[in-house]
């Protein structure tokens, strides 16, 4: 079973990202589960959401304590939240940032990766909404999921031009991670 923890701020679509990842993983033939760390969701407050992906049906209902992958939507969260907490030694922490991974001094053996998702989102979508972009980067970094499945899930949730633009941004982020 692979466990993913998404860190963001209220309003950044962390919960939506977790859900879309679950939809995409199921489309890939896996079983999946997505849920938020049920806070009283307020815009700007730190938020966590979780996705589990597994070959077999998922029964576990606990929160994710030892993630295989961590996705950080907002690097300013690193000042207030221990995003690396429990990350597996062979795991990956994917941070939305224009810095190189070496910039981040985290207490972890997990591999740190960065992607400038904000720039991709602004360039292609025209708004600094990075949740779907980071899913594209995640697909590239993890190899766990087909980027087409993510694009399909996003286009189904956001039909029309918004979905198309997001799909383009997802592909761009995927390409950047796989070419890196």
């Amino acid at each position: 079973m692979k466990e993913i923890r998404i860190h963001g701020r209220g309003g950044q679509g962390s919960v939506t990202a977790a859900e879309l990842l679950a939809v995409a993983a199921f489309a890939d033939g896996k079983f999946s589960q997505a849920f938020p760390a049920f806070g009283v969701e307020r815009r700007g407050a730190p938020v966590q959401a979780f996705t589990r992906i597994n070959d077999d049906p998922i029964r576990l209902r606990a929160q994710v304590y030892e993630p295989d992958y961590v996705i950080v939507q907002d690097p300013t969260l690193l000042e207030v939240v221990s995003v690396e907490s429990g990350a597996k030694d062979d795991g990956v922490i994917l941070i939305n940032s224009d810095f190189e991974p070496e910039h981040f001094d985290l207490n972890t053996n997990a591999k740190i990766m960065t992607v400038n998702a904000t720039k991709i989102a602004l360039d292609i979508i025209g708004r600094p909404i990075v949740n779907t972009v980071l899913l594209g980067a995640f697909a590239g970094a993890s190899g766990l999921i087909d980027p087409e499945s993510i694009k399909d899930a996003v286009k189904e949730r956001f039909p029309g031009k918004v979905g198309e633009k997001n799909a383009e941004a997802i592909q761009k982020a995927y390409d950047m991670m796989t070419e890196a």
Binding site: A22, F26, F31, Q33
Partner: peptide, 10 residues
């Protein structure tokens, strides 16, 4: 509540 009402699963 939440654990089942707000979870996405197949």
């Amino acid at each position: 509540g939440f654990i089942l009402s707000h979870v996405y699963e197949p």
